[in-house]
Design a protein around this nucleic acid. Structure first.
Lengths: 355, 355
DNA sequence: ACGCATATTGAGAGCGTTCTCAAGACTTGT
DNA sequence: ACAAGTCTTGAGAACGCTCTCAATATGCGT
């Protein structure tokens, strides 16, 4: 059976089943108004011939392309990949995206776009024209880049904004950053910590602000100070090193740090080690992201688990369900959880519980 | 300018440039026989209108789909993703694949397929029919699954087999596994180690055999023993724990272990720690893969760097270049390198160099 | 200049699907 | 049993592009 098999088209199925091409199409797409008897006959033919509709042809004629395009930051992603630093996002995006897409007969494609470039519109526009996706998923920091959101809105392509709660077109989804930071802070306070610092992400990311907000709110509720306990990094390792050093230099009483990324937390761990501080005995550490690298550090890090896969999955479902770009949609929040490992413990000199 | 812009088609460009639709097509595809003057005019129109050909339409009419499909093992990939163990492959595949594809105007899609399932052909067949990719990239263990390679050959779809040097259709590519294992072994011997163990991967993977082969050959050349120094794992953490324990139990003189995956090496590190062995003082460790997790372990691991991105990139280029499925192609080898970190050192009681 | 080869252009069909719309087959109410 | 629906089916156009092939323009040798 070495002969090259010709592609099975809808026409072959129609002939085989003895119905019109259009009827097959209806069966394939679950159209209404088809007699059960005919439907079964067509299904049998499809099965027998192994027919699968061509995505390209479906796109050509129909209004849908069955493609969801996920946009990630190129610069950051490539750097992470090249230097094997561990990617915060792409893995989990694919996990959530591919699975959910295929469940609905869709396909996911990944596009890397430079948000800082002055030809974002050009790059993204080309991808949109070529692929004509039914939906686009934006991740930070693209989620709030007006050049991008406006381009998408103008082209009337439904899109999801992950990590954004701004008004405007597109479906906003967040991962409960404020709540997660609040949770981490509270947990540390429960362990007895009274000087809890935060290494935040860059302010260009909305989620950086939300995390700071959650941290501050928890501290306020607990009657703990926040002055001098905040440093800003860029999510990268080096910035974590700088921030941890500054924090430790400035606060002799510091016993706990929450870092806004795994890499910054790992950097803090290294700084602590250099200074002879044992984690978690002398210093507790909680990171954001929960990527694989924090499972195998010494000690393994307690981390806020960003439910990226779940969030992307929700985004995909929203995009597939709604055909429209409804502005001002309710923010969908997929809450993050706390995975306790071995970088958190009671502080060296436990303070009595607050009265 | 809030009006919904209609898609710019090749017809719009033709009109704008005052030429036929066919001429525009020729310019876009770099066809020969177009006067420079006309070409420039058309290019200007394309630029002005922001025309980008529709992938779907190109696929419909032409012979190419401009899509390369990368197949990865679903079971393993999903487990790695879900449990945040770090994926050995997908990241780097995307790095090499996406970049190289886009350089040639192609797109890469990822498909997860269960190699053990009895409906591999069905699953893969559906993906092939829907996408009609111009090329497929197979990663282990799919690279040598006859069900898959035969399906591809029968459909006359060019494909690359990464991690396979078998005869038959498809372009074979390897990462010099024997050489890499040889290199790691030799390096350890240079440091003075005389009892160098290997935790191999499952025998279903050809590369497992190659690595054992390289290790054994190096040992033979160096006059060192290999008896009792081989254990087989499944690349996963737990299997690494079992293997490391067995190795250490059986060989009191053991001072170095080469593990066939990062996770197994990390497991060995943990076993050593449990037994009070300090790495690298008491035990040297070299892992295969060099994924992010070994950069942040304590100590950071010396590792064989699998050039997955580069290999996939080469595969993409081959697939795009050749339109044909030439059997018995020469094996393309992208050699792996050794990244020295802090898990390797001279053994506790250095042996004199061999006479 | 003339005829032939070659370079350049355009016209029309076709790719595999879904869309629109019209035709035929069945119901149902009276 | 008849008209007026409602269900079910099919025919043909359309999607945006590349293919094939024919038509025209240009270059060359003598």
């Amino acid at each position: 059976m070495a002969r090259v098999r010709k592609t099975v088209t809808i026409r072959d199925v129609a002939e085989d089943a003895g119905v019109s091409l259009q009827t097959v199409s209806r069966v394939v797409n679950g159209g209404p108004n088809v007699r059960p008897q005919v439907r079964d006959k067509v299904r049998a033919a499809i099965e027998r011939l192994g027919y699968v509709p061509s995505l390209a042809a479906q796109r050509m004629s129909g209004s849908r392309s069955y493609i969801i395009l996920a946009i990630n930051d190129r610069e950051r992603t490539l750097a992470d990949w090249r230097e094997r630093r561990g990617t915060d996002w792409v893995d989990q995006m694919l996990l959530g995206g591919i699975l959910t897409c295929s469940k609905h007969g869709y396909r996911m494609m990944v596009e890397l776009v430079d948000t800082h470039s002055d030809h974002v519109e050009r790059e993204l526009g080309a991808a949109l024209s070529a692929l004509q996706p039914d939906g686009v998923i934006l991740t930070p920091p693209h989620s709030e880049n007006p050049l991008i959101t406006e381009l998408l809105a103008q082209r009337a392509i439904p899109f999801a904004r992950i990590g954004s709660d701004a008004e405007g077109p597109g479906i906003p989804l967040t991962m409960g950053d404020a709540g997660a930071a609040h949770l981490a802070t509270t947990r540390l306070a429960e362990l007895g910590h009274r000087h809890i610092a935060m290494i935040a992400g860059p302010s260009a990311y909305s989620l950086s602000g939300w995390r700071i907000e959650g941290w501050k709110r928890a501290l306020a509720e607990l009657g703990l100070p926040h002055e001098g306990l905040l440093e800003v990094g860029d999510f990268g390792y080096e910035s974590g090193t700088r921030a941890a050093r500054a924090l430790l230099d400035r606060n002799p009483d510091l016993t706990a740090i929450i870092a806004s990324s795994d890499q910054m937390a790992l950097a803090a761990l290294e700084v602590a080690r250099d200074r002879g501080l044992v984690v978690p005995r002398d210093l507790s550490l909680i990171s954001f992201d929960n990527t694989p690298i924090v499972r195998f550090s010494q000690p393994p890090l307690t981390a806020i688990d960003q439910p990226i896969a779940e969030t992307v999955s929700r985004a995909v479902e929203q995009l597939i369900a709604r055909g429209e770009n409804l502005g001002g949609a309710t923010v969908i929040e997929v809450p993050a959880g706390l995975v306790e490992r071995s970088s958190t413990a009671a502080p060296p000199r436990p303070h009595p519980a607050r009265a």
